[in-house]
Design a protein around this nucleic acid. Sequence first.
DNA 1: CCTATTCATGGCAACTTTGCCATAAAGCCA
DNA 2: TGGCTTTATGGCAAAGTTGCCATGAATAGG
Lengths: 107, 107
Amino acid sequence: MKPKSPQFYEARARVAKAMAHPSRLLLLDALQEKERCVCELTELVGADQSTVSKHLAILKQAGLVEDRKEGVMTYYRPKVVCLEGFWRCIETVLKENLKSQSAAISA
Amino acid sequence: MKPKSPQFYEARARVAKAMAHPSRLLLLDALQEKERCVCELTELVGADQSTVSKHLAILKQAGLVEDRKEGVMTYYRPKVVCLEGFWRCIETVLKENLKSQSAAISA
DNA sequence: CCTATTCATGGCAACTTTGCCATAAAGCCA
DNA sequence: TGGCTTTATGGCAAAGTTGCCATGAATAGG
C-alpha cells in the first residue's frame, strides 16, 4: 500500500462524519428522491427548524448536497450519487452476517 | 419515499460512525490489502496500542472487519467490499466540485 | 410600512468520543 | 515457573457533537 497522508484520511473522515447521524441520513434519503425546502425537511425530521438547518449545513459543507435559494425558501438537493449503492451493499453484507450468526447459534 | 423507521437510520448511522475517524479509515484501507495483526496496525497508525485496539473493536462491532486469533496475536481482516468503490465515487465527485469552484473563481 | 414566513446563526447545557495510562489476561519459550 | 510479548479493558480528562432557545436577516403579501 502506498502510504497516504493524514490529510487524505481526514478528508474522507469529514465526509463519513457528515453521514454519521440518523437525521442526516434521513435527509440524504429524502433528497435522493427530489429537491426539497428546509420547511418540508423540518417536518420530515421532526426536530427544531434550527437543528435541521444545522444538519443541512453540515451536509453541504461535506459536499454531499447543494442548495438553491428561491425567494424566501432554500431548496436542497443531492450532489453525489454514491450513497444508494453504498448502503445497498452495506445492508446486504450486514444481513448475511446476521444470517450466519443465527445459523451458528441454532447449530 | 416509503417512510423508514428511526431504527433504520440508526443502523446506518452506526456504520457511518464507525467510518467517521481518520485512524479507522487508515485501518480499513490497510486491511483492504491484507490481513494484519494489531501490532502491525499499531505501528501503522502511530498511536498507543490500546487506542488502536479500541478503534478495531469499533470497526468489528459495526461489522466492517472481523478477527482471527492465532496464539498471542489477533489478525484483523475486512468483512465488507463496499468501501473502495464508495470512496472512489466520493472522491471523483468532490474533485469535480473543486474544479468547477476554481473555474468559477477565476472567471 | 407592518406582519408573517422562511431560513441561518450564536449561545449554551447535556451527552458522546477520543486517547493515554495503568493494568489484566493469555500465549510463548527458556 | 518466570519473564516477555501481544492484545483487551477500565478509568478519566480533554475535545467534539447535538439540540433547543432566542434572535437576526431577508422576502413576500397585505
